[in-house]
Design a protein around this nucleic acid. Structure first.
Length: 153
DNA sequence: GCCAACGTTGGC
DNA sequence: GCCAACGTTGGC
């Protein structure tokens, strides 16, 4: 059992969108970074905890708690020429990019990034490191518990 | 819109 | 395999 932070642009897929989805579950697609992909492929397990983070928006922050709901499988968007995420180098035989399914679990209070800065228990979070842009990053149990507490959960 | 930081590409 | 140029991320 591990914990992760996963970034989504709410204009594309927000936590509220996941809550409204059938089974509160969506495919996590569009990861186009090898380090993030490798976390999904090699380390994620069904049931792992996910901090669902909203990025590139007015108030970036953790919007809810989710859980990994599937193993890795090929990300369909890499094969779709009409998709923003199309990858001409990917083939059905040799996919480059993968998805996992993610299920929304509980919403809690929105935790802005600005509130996370300066919290001693969170200062080592990958998210808060200077220059860090990883869209999927590991979270320690201590960080997980602190974020939940700050969200009133 | 700015720009720092980082990742990727491609010529050599 | 180096590394300059370019593209992207994402907070502000």
């Amino acid at each position: 059992m591990r914990y992760w932070l996963m970034k989504s642009e709410p204009d594309e897929v927000s936590f509220a969108d996941v809550l409204k989805a059938p089974g509160k579950t969506v495919a996590w697609f569009g990861v186009r970074n090898y380090q993030a992909r490798n976390f999904m492929r090699d380390q994620m397990q069904v049931g792992d905890g996910v901090l669902f983070y909203h990025s590139s928006c007015a108030v970036p922050g953790v919007a809810g708690i989710a859980r990994v709901a599937s193993g890795p499988y090929p990300d369909a968007s890499q094969f779709d020429p009409a998709s923003h995420y199309f990858d001409p180098k990917a083939t059905r035989e040799q996919p480059r990019w993968i998805s996992v399914d993610v299920t929304a679990v509980e919403e809690g209070r929105y935790l802005p990034l600005s509130d996370m800065r300066g919290v001693p228990e969170l200062e080592d979070m990958v998210l808060l490191q200077k220059g860090s842009r990883l869209s999927i990053s590991p979270v320690t149990p201590g960080q997980w518990n602190k974020v939940r507490e700050l969200m009133g959960l």
